[in-house]
């Protein structure tokens, strides 16, 4: 691990999450695939980190494990002090809803709902539909610059606008970190820039961001880059 040692030792609360010796093995048609072969790294609260790697490097598997969509074969995944590596489906769902904010490459907004309703979806699964829910969603929509399009359907929005709605949605539950999977992959360079600026401003406000990407230009904007190759960390560097 090349990562520079911080001067003062961080305490437990200052970690967004820690992964230790994460391994994930698939068994497919009699073949054993080692997608992750011992990945260890920590992410501190307020970090903006990009995870890079060519296809087959274990990037997607790591994303699934970090996103609590998949369980590692072995190793530990401490998310805010709890080891979530081997918990059941129900608990994983709760963790996803409360602690992780997903942003996808293809936005994944729900077509039958308008902007405001889309932002509200994660709150519904936490049973957090209070009187202030609408106000909070409206506030987030305004923050991402869509205050005037609250009642539009996703089909009536451009790609960049849709992705901004998705970012607002990822923030609604105050997650421990935002997990963005190729969030700019479907956008042109101008909107990519806008979305990345949004991420940067969120990070400046203290949000932890984990960005999975294969584009160098996107990774350059992060503060730290982890490169994967063949299921292990190849490099872990702070950007200048």
């Amino acid at each position: 691990m090349i990562r520079a040692q911080q001067a003062d030792q961080p305490n437990a609360e200052s970690f967004a999450f820690r992964v230790q010796d994460l391994r994930r093995t698939y068994f497919m048609k009699g073949e054993t695939v080692h997608a992750l072969r011992g990945v260890t790294f920590d992410v501190l609260v307020g970090e903006y980190i990009a995870i890079m790697g060519p296809s087959g490097s274990g990037k997607s598997t790591l994303l699934n494990v970090l996103g609590c969509l998949d369980r590692p074969t072995s190793g530990s995944y401490l998310l805010a002090g709890d080891d979530v590596a081997q918990i059941n489906d129900y608990q994983l769902s709760r963790i996803r809803g409360r602690r992780i904010g997903f942003v996808f490459q293809s936005y994944n907004l729900l077509q039958q709902l308008n902007v405001l309703e889309n932002i509200k979806v994660p709150l519904q699964y936490q049973g957090l539909i209070g009187k202030d829910a609408n106000a909070k969603c409206r506030e987030l929509a305004e923050m991402v610059g869509l205050g005037s399009r609250l009642y539009h359907r996703p089909t009536e929005l451009s790609g960049g606008q849709q992705q901004r709605v998705a970012i607002a949605r990822s923030l609604v539950n105050d997650p421990y970190f935002i997990l963005a999977d190729e969030a700019t992959g479907n956008l042109d360079s101008k909107t990519t820039d806008e979305v990345l600026e949004l991420f940067e401003s969120l990070n400046a406000n203290g949000k932890t961001i984990v960005m999975i990407t294969h584009e160098d230009e996107v990774a350059e904007r992060a503060k730290r880059v982890i490169r994967l190759r063949d299921g292990v960390i190849e490099s872990d560097e702070l950007n200048a």
Partner: peptide, 9 residues
């Protein structure tokens, strides 16, 4: 998407 956003089974 709903499962990722926290929906249980």
């Amino acid at each position: 998407v709903r499962r990722a956003l926290g929906a249980t089974r």
